[in-house]
Design a binder for these strands. Sequence first.
DNA 1: GTCATATCGTCAGCGTAACTGATGATCAGC
DNA 2: GCTGATCATCAGTTACGCTGACGATATGAC
Lengths: 137, 137
Amino acid sequence: MGSMVSDRLGYLLKHVLAELTEAQAAALAPQGLNGRDLAVLSAVASGEPLSQLEVAARLRVDRTSIGDLLDGLEERGLVERRRSTEDRRRNVVVLTPQGESTFEAAERIRLDVERRFLAPIPHPDRFRKDLRLLLGE
Amino acid sequence: MGSMVSDRLGYLLKHVLAELTEAQAAALAPQGLNGRDLAVLSAVASGEPLSQLEVAARLRVDRTSIGDLLDGLEERGLVERRRSTEDRRRNVVVLTPQGESTFEAAERIRLDVERRFLAPIPHPDRFRKDLRLLLGE
DNA sequence: GTCATATCGTCAGCGTAACTGATGATCAGC
DNA sequence: GCTGATCATCAGTTACGCTGACGATATGAC
């Protein structure tokens, strides 16, 4: 018997990711967000104010993509860019009050989506841990 | 403390996939292939002759992408398209002899890459199985 | 203080891939 | 034969990662 296509790690990861992305997008659509937007909000929300480049680095997103991403969020009034006073090259990104509440609601949705998504797996946390190991985190 | 970005399932899957793709591309470059090409070869190699649409379906690749993919492989003399005699709409795709040997060598490389890639995980097979469960396969 | 170097944000452009919608050729059912 | 479906192809759109350049700003050497 030949090897199944679904034995390929790349195939598995690619389509698992695609299905998760789709499920997240569908669940977050009422908030006007997708998983990518939410990830940016989450980076901005997590503690000290970050510059755009720092946000990009946390998300491992390309530096030239983060600008457009923030544009969208800023237009919707969820984040603000403020020129840093200490270093005027930096745009410090912060959540607006509306951004905070949207973020919290969306995070609950995301957790629920992920929980349901991982339901077919006997030990979801172990699976997450495996992924983290593969990234060396 | 806030939630880490690396808690997000989407983040984990995305970057694990990116690293695997990169590792595969690097390892397969001497064969003039990437992981995507190899997946096509594998679908073509596995048993009965398939039409282009059937190849696309197996790989879950869009129907309009598979043509270009096959173009490249055909130019390199690895596959052939033959008009089916029973149904002249169909292009039956088969491996050339050179395609077969290239495929076999590349498959060994892929298996090795995947083995090394999964090395940080205590039970790689269980991880694979989890992924398959998520796809419902 | 001045200069060289580096960093931040932005922009234009490239390559890849998924996707939509249309087309011509061909097949199957009636 | 006619209608509708299927196969391969083509043009066009969108999304994303990436490179290379730019002006503005900061930092360090001197």
